[in-house]
Write a protein that binds this DNA or RNA. Structure first.
Lengths: 179, 179
DNA sequence: AATGAAATATATCGGATTGATATAGTATAA
DNA sequence: TTATACTATATCAATCCGATATATTTCATT
């Protein structure tokens, strides 16, 4: 999904600044299935503005730093709808941690342990963030996707916990079973 | 993970051509957690070659098209080990389908149904591919990661199946509950 | 009131990646 | 013999990514 469509997606839910758009993909409801950085957001907002798909309200001076709030126009809403009408590209997962664990025999024990611990902690935190998102009065599609993300995170946490020994105590017989 | 490290990762498991490396990320054991295209693989192989980290065996003519088989050198193996010693970047998921389903109310019914069906079929196929991979004599790290991928895919299939109505029969009361 | 740390906010840049496409030999079958 | 598909290498423009620069505000500490 290109940066322009992602920005429109945030804006159809409410006006926002570039900074606020970024936060949606960092911590907000999109965090677990899309990502886009400032290097894509700002050029995208410029283009969308040129094309008349969004309108900018610039508030310079007045005691605070410039704050440009973007709002989607009716034309933008229509373009967004058309973007969603296409068939989606297949999902893509990029997990460097999984790559490391795949080659566990190339890592020294301490590093492997740290990778495992950090990875599990990361996913546990994600579960909590997702559970914290308020599901009140949210359209069904958003509820569905939120549940999907949660199911995914929980599956990872469960698997990691249940199969810890397979990765970390491999080949060590039943030696240092105590932790 | 940069393309060079990904290529080295494939090559430490056995010699391969650029085409074969690609297949590893398309269907092979890396398919569910990394991706890299020809546009990254060929430049990476050139650089690795220049740096003496891999060796090329060119077999031109002889009835078949050129086939360049790459093999990792001892220096390459060491560089690979060092690459793995760094802390991994956080996971990244990019799901355009989830983005569409998030905005379910913007999609017409037929398209939403198609998106749901294709998505579920895609993940069911992934589960079968993963289950088909032979786990005989595989190091523990690879078993662990294979299981992790499988757990993830199965969680998606289960959630999608159990929550179908939330997405597709939203707001329709208890009307056409029979399917 | 000064200092520093953290958060808010916009923006840019080089290098890397992506998806599409070009090219071409082999194989199989209609 | 036409064509469809697979194997195989390679390139390219458009885009994207991670890092960084800049600057103001807010808030707690000293």
């Amino acid at each position: 999904m290109d940066a322009k469509t992602l920005c429109l997606g945030v804006l159809v839910m409410g006006d926002a600044s570039g900074y606020e758009i970024r936060k949606m993909f960092e911590e907000g409801p999109f965090a677990h299935f899309q990502d886009v950085g400032y290097g894509s957001i700002y050029p995208a907002l410029s283009k969308l503005s040129e094309e008349g798909l969004i309108a900018v309200t610039d508030t310079p001076g007045e005691g605070h730093p410039d704050k440009k709030v973007y709002a989607v126009t009716p034309a933008g809403r229509e373009v967004f709808r058309q973007s969603l009408a296409r068939a989606p590209m297949p999902d893509k997962v990029r997990s460097d941690a999984a790559f490391l664990m795949f080659f566990a025999e190339f890592l020294d024990r301490d590093h492997l342990n740290a990778v495992y611990d950090d990875y599990l902690a990361f996913y546990r935190a994600r579960v909590e963030i997702m559970q914290g998102l308020d599901p009140e009065g949210v359209p069904e599609g958003r509820l569905f996707v939120r549940g999907l993300g949660l199911a995914f995170y929980q599956a990872v946490v469960t698997y990691m916990t249940e199969n810890r020994d397979l990765l970390l105590n491999a080949g060590s017989g039943k030696a240092d079973a105590a932790e």
